[in-house]
Amino acid sequence: MGLGFLVGFLGFLILIHAAYSTIQYRGLLKITEEEFSGPPLNVVIEVTLGLVLCMWAALTVPGKFLSIHPDSEENRIVSLPANLDFMIFNHRYKVFSVELDVKLKH
């Protein structure tokens, strides 16, 4: 979880740096009076790296998929108390209290 956040943040920082490089590149083009035909190679590489890191983060940070089959291994224990028929409100003291009352009366 923490690692995923860190990787996503790193990817975002790389993207911001790529944006800054592109702004500088455009400033350079303005000085040399050329037309913008496409981003420079280092920006493309940075953007790809940032996108890959962010994709990894986006796929790992939200958590794990849980099985939706009611009879799968990890759902067995959880689904038993979810069914109200299996709830038991009896306990040992219920039997005990009667005997205690009887004892106290005597």
Partner: peptide, 23 residues
């Protein structure tokens, strides 16, 4: 489904930034 929405929203934001940077 919550995980899917999370992933998609985050990646569309990042994808938007990338598309903007690449022009």
């Amino acid at each position: 489904m919550k995980i899917i929405y999370y992933s998609r929203t985050f990646l569309s934001i990042i994808g938007g930034v990338v598309a903007g940077i690449l022009g």
